[in-house]
C-alpha cells in the first residue's frame, strides 16, 4: 500500500527540497511507495488543495522552514491537522534556522532596515497590502505545534532524508545519533592548546590536522554528526548547522563551555576573538536558545 506524503515550505531557502531531489535515481527506490498529495516546490499545488484534505489523512508530513509570516503559521497548523506523522525537516523547522538570528532585533527595526534603510532603496515603503503580515519573532516550529520526528540539517543530506523516509515507510523509529561531527571527521586530533583564533580566510590550513587544533573555530565537537563531516573534510570549519546532539539544551552554551576548557588565552584576547559571537555559535539555532527566549519575554513585556 502506498503512503500519502506531503512536503510543505514555510519561510526558508527550499534547500531541503533541493537536497531531496539530489537523490537522483535513488529517488526511484522510495517514490513508488509514496503518493505525494502536496509539494508546491515541485508541482503547482495550492494551499486549498491541502486544506481540502480530510484531517489526519496524510501519513508523513514534512515541514521545511520556519514561521516568519502569519501565513507560515497557518500552513504549519494545517499540516499538523492533516498529518499523522509530522517531520520537522531541516534546521529551520527544528530550531528556527538562520533567520532566527533576526531575533536580536525588533520587527520594527528589521522592517525599517530592509524596506527603508537598505542602500539600494530610493523611495522606500513597508509593504502592507496583499501580504500576510510578519510574526514578531521566529520560534522553533516544535514550540508552535507538536512534532513526531526531528530531522535537522542545513540542509539534511540527501541520504539523511532518504534514511528518514525509509525508516518511516518501514514503520521504524528514526532517532538522532548521539555522536558528533568530530566522530565522523577524518582529520588527526591532538591535545588542544588554542592560543589564537583565526578567521576562516586567514592563514593556510594544514589538510591533515584538526581545524580546531589549528585555531579555526570548527564547531564539530558540539554538533550532531549526521553530515559525514562534509565541511571539515574539505578544510572548511564546521558552522554547526545541524545543531547540537540530543540532550544538549543550548548549542552556544555548550560551545563556550568547551572553548573555555581548551582556549589558552587571556580574558581580553578571548573577548576580542569573536566579532559576532551569536552568529558564530548559533548559526541556525539562535531561536531555540535560552538567550532568544529570554529576549522574547522582554519584547512581550514592552508591547
Amino acid at each position: 500500500m502506498t503512503k500519502r506524503a506531503a512536503f510543505a515550505q514555510l519561510s526558508s531557502c527550499w534547500g531541503c527540497d533541493q537536497s531531496l531531489v539530489d537523490l537522483h535515481l535513488k529517488l526511484l527506490d522510495v517514490l513508488p511507495e509514496l503518493e505525494i498529495v502536496y509539494w508546491p516546490a515541485v508541482v503547482d499545488y495550492k494551499l486549498k488543495d491541502l486544506e481540502n484534505l480530510p484531517d489526519r489523512s496524510i501519513h508523513f508530513g514534512f515541514v521545511e522552514g520556519s514561521c516568519r509570516t502569519r501565513e507560515d503559521e497557518h500552513l504549519l497548523r494545517t499540516m499538523r491537522a492533516k498529518s499523522k506523522v509530522l517531520v520537522a525537516w531541516g534546521s529551520c523547522s527544528c530550531y528556527g534556522g538562520v533567520q532566527g538570528l533576526a531575533n536580536q532585533w525588533t520587527l520594527k527595526e528589521l522592517l525599517e532596515r530592509k524596506f527603508l534603510k537598505a542602500e539600494t532603496i530610493t523611495d522606500g515603503r513597508i509593504p502592507d497590502e496583499n501580504v500576510p503580515g510578519f510574526k514578531e519573532d521566529i520560534r522553533p516550529n516544535p514550540d508552535v505545534v507538536p512534532f513526531d520526528v526531528l530531522l535537522p540539517g542545513c540542509p539534511p543530506t540527501s541520504d539523511n532524508t532518504a534514511e528518514a523516509l525509509s525508516a518511516l515507510l518501514a514503520g521504524q523509529p528514526f532517532d538522532l545519533p548521539e555522536k558528533t561531527v568530530c566522530d565522523q571527521c577524518p582529520k588527526v586530533r591532538e591535545e588542544k592548546h588554542i592560543k589564537v583564533v583565526h578567521r576562516t580566510h586567514e592563514g593556510k590550513v594544514d589538510p591533515e590536522r584538526c581545524l580546531l587544533d589549528q585555531g579555526y573555530l570548527c564547531l564539530g565537537f558540539a554538533t550532531i554528526g549526521m553530515c559525514g563531516a562534509q565541511c571539515p573534510s574539505v578544510n572548511t570549519p564546521c558552522k554547526g548547522c545541524f545543531g547540537p546532539p540530543p540532550g544538549i539544551k543550548d548549542h552556544g552554551a555548550k560551545i563556550i563551555s568547551a572553548l573555555g576548557a581548551i582556549a589558552e588565552m587571556s580574558p581580553e584576547e578571548l573577548k576580542e576573538a569573536f566579532p559576532d559571537p551569536l552568529g558564530s555559535f548559533y548559526f541556525t539555532d539562535y531561536a531555540a536558545s535560552y538567550l532568544s527566549r529570554l529576549v522574547g519575554h522582554t519584547k512581550e513585556e514592552e508591547q
Binding site: S257, L278, L291, V295
Partner: peptide, 19 residues
C-alpha cells in the same frame, strides 16, 4: 580559569542578545 574564560564569552553573548 576555565570558568573565567566561559564567563567572558557568556557576557559577550548576553550583551549581544540585549540582556
Amino acid at each position: 580559569l576555565r570558568m573565567r574564560s566561559r564567563y567572558v564569552l557568556l557576557k559577550r553573548l548576553l550583551e549581544q542578545a540585549g540582556i
